[in-house]
Design a protein around this nucleic acid. Sequence first.
DNA 1: CTTCATGCAAAACATTTGCAGCTGG
DNA 2: CCAGCTGCAAATGTTTTGCATGAAG
Lengths: 149, 149
Amino acid sequence: MRDSNVRLEHMLSKLKRQHFRITPQRLCVVKILAAGKGHPSAEEIYAQVKKDFPTTSLATVYKTINLLKEMGEILELGFSHDSSRYDGSNPHPHPHLICMRCKRIVDFEAPALTGMARDISRKTGYEIVNHRLDFFGICPECREEKQSG
Amino acid sequence: MRDSNVRLEHMLSKLKRQHFRITPQRLCVVKILAAGKGHPSAEEIYAQVKKDFPTTSLATVYKTINLLKEMGEILELGFSHDSSRYDGSNPHPHPHLICMRCKRIVDFEAPALTGMARDISRKTGYEIVNHRLDFFGICPECREEKQSG
DNA sequence: CTTCATGCAAAACATTTGCAGCTGG
DNA sequence: CCAGCTGCAAATGTTTTGCATGAAG
C-alpha cells in the first residue's frame, strides 16, 4: 500500500511533467498498474477499468500502457502465444517465476544477473542494455491439484 | 558441419521412428534447422525452402516447425512483437544474446542457471520445468555503425 | 479554445486451422 | 492403397492505427 502510493504519485507527476493529460480512464489504468497487484494483462486491466468507466475501450488501455512503457515506468512481459502481462511495481528488469498451469507470475531478485551482464559485455563486446529471465514451472497450489484432480 | 549432420540424422530418425513422413519440403525445413546456422524465423526458413520447392507454403513450414518443437528437437525463441526465431542446434534451454539493432542472436552457456533453478524450487516450492534468459544489447558491429552513421 | 485523448472500427501481423487433393511408404 | 501431408484461403488472437467526436487544461 505504502509503496504503491509512492509509485502512483511518481507515475502521475511524471505524466504531468511531460504534459500528458490525466483523464479519468488514464488515471484508472495507472492506478491499477501502480498498485502492483499481480501482473495483469491488457484485458484484465480493461475489465477492471470498465467497472468504473463502462464506455472505456481496449484501445485506450493499450495506449496508456504504451505510454507508461515508453516512459520506462512499467515492465512488459511479452509472450509469443499468450498476451503480454505488465509489471508496474518494479520497472527494472528482474526475474519472474511463471506457473504454466494457472499463469500466475511472481517476482524475485537475482543480483547475480547484473554481474553476469557485465561479464558477457566484456567477453563479447556487446553493449548490454536489458535482460529478461523467466522460470517456467508449476506452483505449489497447482501441484496439489495435479495429484488429486 | 560434423555436429549439424549428427543433428540432422537424429531428427530424421526420430521422425521416422514416430512414423512421420519425410516429404521433400519437410526434409528441407529439417535440414535448415539442423544446420544450426543462426536462429532463423519461419519466414526466413520459408524463403530458403522456396528456392528448392517454389510451391511450398508458409503453413507447411509452420507445421514442420511445430512438429519438431513438440518432439523437443528445436527451441522456440518467441517474442511478443517480432516473429519467433528457432534454434535447431541445441534444444536445451540456454541463454541468448540478442542485438536489438540487427536482430542477430548468439548462443552462450551459463551453467549457473540450473543451480539457480534448483535454488528457486527449494525456496518457493515450484517445480521448475523450463527457463529462458535473454540479454538484449548492441553487437560490436552495430556499435561501430552507430558511431559513424 | 486548442490540443490531445477517447472510442469505434478497421488494419496489421504472426500463427493456426479446415479442407480438397495429392503422395510417400 | 490410404493415412498423413500439402497448399490455399480463411480464421484467430493480440495489438495498433485512422479518424471523428469530446473533454482536459
